[in-house]
Amino acid sequence: MNLIHFFTLGFFPEYIVMGIILGILIGIYTLFRVKYALNDSNLSKNKQIIISSIIAILSFLFCLNIWSMGAILIFYLFISSLIADLIRIIQKYLIKEKHLNFIPIIHKKGLLAIIIFTIIILGSVYGMNHIELTEYNLTTDKIDNKSYSILFISDVHYGTVQNTQLVKDSILKMNNLKPDIVLLGGDIVDERTTKDSMQEIFEELGKINSTYGTYYIFGNHDRQPYTSDYENGNRTFTDSDLNQSIEKNRIKILNDDKITINNDFVLVGRSDAEWEDSINRTDVNEILNESDLSKNIAVLDHQPVEYEENAQEGVDLQLSGHTHGGQVFPYGMIYDLSGRLNYGEYEIKDMKQIVSSGLTGWGWPMRNEAKCEYVLININ
């Protein structure tokens, strides 16, 4: 994470209004909170106002790009200070315990907020550096006397915010699961992944042994469309480099295409939906044309979209990633409040939708919502 990423990572101008509102809120709070902390100092009133104003303005500016590392850190410092204020109020009006007389001192100087902030950040760094297995058990009457295990891996963003050795160690554990099918749900790499790292991750993923092969779809970052958000301003590999590396490692690309697996599964791999409200791709009913709907039909779609249409078409299972389960508070909460699918297992009519939080995360080297995971789906 360099200085440029701290300010510009993932800038999308359509979110500027949210950044302005957040910046004003935090800026006003910061102005009064810093002035309160300086009240007992030897500084003159004018100097206190100047220092408070400068810090408030900087806080406002950091918040303008809500996807930047600076905005997240300022927001968490704001939340930490509010929690510290609440602790102080409880101590003053409810507990009134003489043994807690140190709280007013460390609260006024901001030390209590800094302690809480440090705990939040350390916990978030821990969350990004631990990967867990998540299992789902599904039943179907479309497969006779057989069971299948599907390993689903999404949102690796390799070589960016997570220790690459941790990813490699997790892939070794995945191989021990001996899955029947391996599905790669997109965003395996992104704009900050080097060409060497891109080749390395597909070589590692290609080592996972499965009965019926490994299948891959593109996410919104794999082909590096957002290079303007990053310091080099250029792609580090071409589409041809990416495709060759994938196929070289015996991974099959599905891009608005389908394949029948062992005469039991029809697997549909979707092209990425880009922005959710501007989808321009082949309809799933066209892809499923002439497919045997008595077979188990699974759709692999990077973003959890068009699930109602898929359920209507007779799809049994849809697997998606993209959301990261929010990754850092409050993004997951915003997803949930907006009514969009964020993380976990959902039931839409007769279809199961599973949204993975991803193996890693994007942008920020932290995670405090959902978890880093790889998913095993057992179908019986």
Rank of each mutant, 00 (worst) to 15 (best):
Tyr212Gly: 11
Gly159Trp: 05
Tyr335Ser: 15
Ile95Asn: 02
Tyr136Trp: 11
Lys108Trp: 05
Ser356Asn: 13
Tyr346Cys: 10
Gly206Tyr: 08
Glu135Pro: 05
Ser154Ile: 02
Ile217Gly: 04
Gly206Arg: 13
Pro179Val: 00
Ile253Met: 11
Gly110Pro: 11
Ile79His: 06
Phe237Asn: 03
Ser240Pro: 12
Lys35Arg: 05
Asn285Tyr: 10
Leu133Glu: 07
Asn234Asp: 02
Tyr343Cys: 12
Phe265Lys: 09
Asn137Gly: 04
Leu112Trp: 03
Asp229Phe: 01
Pro13Met: 09
Gly185Thr: 01
Tyr343Arg: 11
Gly339Ser: 13
Asp272Tyr: 12
Ile21Tyr: 09
Ile24Trp: 10
Leu31Arg: 07
Leu376Val: 15
Gly344Leu: 13
Val284Trp: 06
Ser44Lys: 08
Val375Ala: 09
Met174Arg: 00
Leu111Asp: 04
Glu306Cys: 12
Phe117Arg: 03
Asn310Ile: 13
Gly10Asp: 15
Phe62Asp: 00
Asn234Tyr: 01
Asn255Lys: 15
Ser53Cys: 09
Asn378Arg: 13
Ile51Leu: 10
Tyr307Arg: 10
Asp169Phe: 01
His5Lys: 14
Ser170Glu: 10
Gly123Met: 00
Ser154Asn: 08
Tyr29Pro: 03
Tyr36His: 04
Asp40Gly: 08
Ile201Phe: 06
Ser68Phe: 00
Ile334Thr: 13
Tyr226Phe: 11
Ile90Glu: 02
Ser124Thr: 00
Ile103Met: 06
Ile297Asp: 08
Ile287Lys: 13
Leu100Glu: 05
Leu254Trp: 10
Gly363Ala: 15
Ala370Phe: 11
Asp241Ser: 08
Leu77Phe: 05
Gly70Pro: 03
Ser124Asp: 00
Lys47Phe: 07
Leu317Asp: 07
Arg340Ala: 15
Tyr215Gln: 04
Asp264Gln: 08
